[in-house]
Amino acid sequence: MSNNQNKSAMWKRLPIISHYRKAVGLQKGMLVIGLFLSGLFVLTAAFAPLIAPFGYAQSADEEGRFGAQEAPNAEHIWGTTVGGYDVFSRVVWGTQTALMVIVAAVVLSIFAGVILGLLSGYIGGWLDKVIVVIADAIYAFPALLLAIVMAIVISGGQSSMFGGIMAAAISITVVFIPQYFRVIRAETIRLKAEPFVESAKVVGASNVRIMARHIFRNATRTLPLIFTLNASEAILTLAGLGFLGFGIEPTAAAEWGYDLNRAMADATSGIWWTGVFPGLAIVLTVLGLTLVGESMNDLNDPRIRGRKRAGKNGKSRESTEAASAPAVHGTGMEITNE
């Protein structure tokens, strides 16, 4: 099910690289900008200790306490918050928190969603029906509200850095599982009927082996796409939780949503720097991840993909593939009466 049937090198068939090679013009531009912003985000997170001039919970240095709500100046290039923290440092440290939450949330939800999807699709029967109904119920539930409930369950509200990150990650996971589950289940059901699964059965492979080796390997095609889309959603959910006061305490880690919550009152009195910078950090990060995801989505879909170079990347082959690809955006609530 790889995108290139000719025997091109392994690395050329990797998700993002194969998309990059397929992209033309505008789409290539969007993909490149997305990759740049995402790369910037990851690099900032990795080198936060070197970039940030102060700690995220540091409100004083050798020369004494920082002033509160100081406008951007030489020492504090993006000013200080009402609590006397350096805005620039908190934005930089915030990338670390965001990245950790994304990784934890996405890893957890892929793990759970894939296993459930494989079981549900492969075994079928009542197990499948029950899981589908539950997943649909969760899917239709307002994600933020579900995340709030989970945050209450896990931490009872605010908590330490690790606890807070895990709470946010698990809250987001619960929201995401149904998405992975749906995609993997649909793929599993399709693949189950393929001849190679049947021949594996004839050879005597166990169900676990068939699921793990034959189906899983082939069903992961769409995962990178959902991954990028979910990563951006994870940031928004984390920020939403933080904004409502259910995130991570400011002394435990820097979190953009919390900072924006505090900045709300500042804005009314015209203090813009406490809110604009963390807000822009969220927007640019989500924008970067979404651009990557969107470009991949479009490049997988021949109805939308740029129409140049006809004949070079044979089109007919792609369209049959896309017909079975699930529409990630815009799948309606599905009726499960069979």
Binding site: F243, G257, L260, A263, M264, A267, G275, G279, L287
Partner: peptide
């Protein structure tokens, strides 16, 4: 369209207010 999605509501609100 992507910016609409990427901007958290409270940040959009903050900018509009400002």
């Amino acid at each position: 369209a992507i910016l609409c999605y990427a901007t958290p509501i409270f940040f959009a609100g903050l900018l509009l207010k400002l």
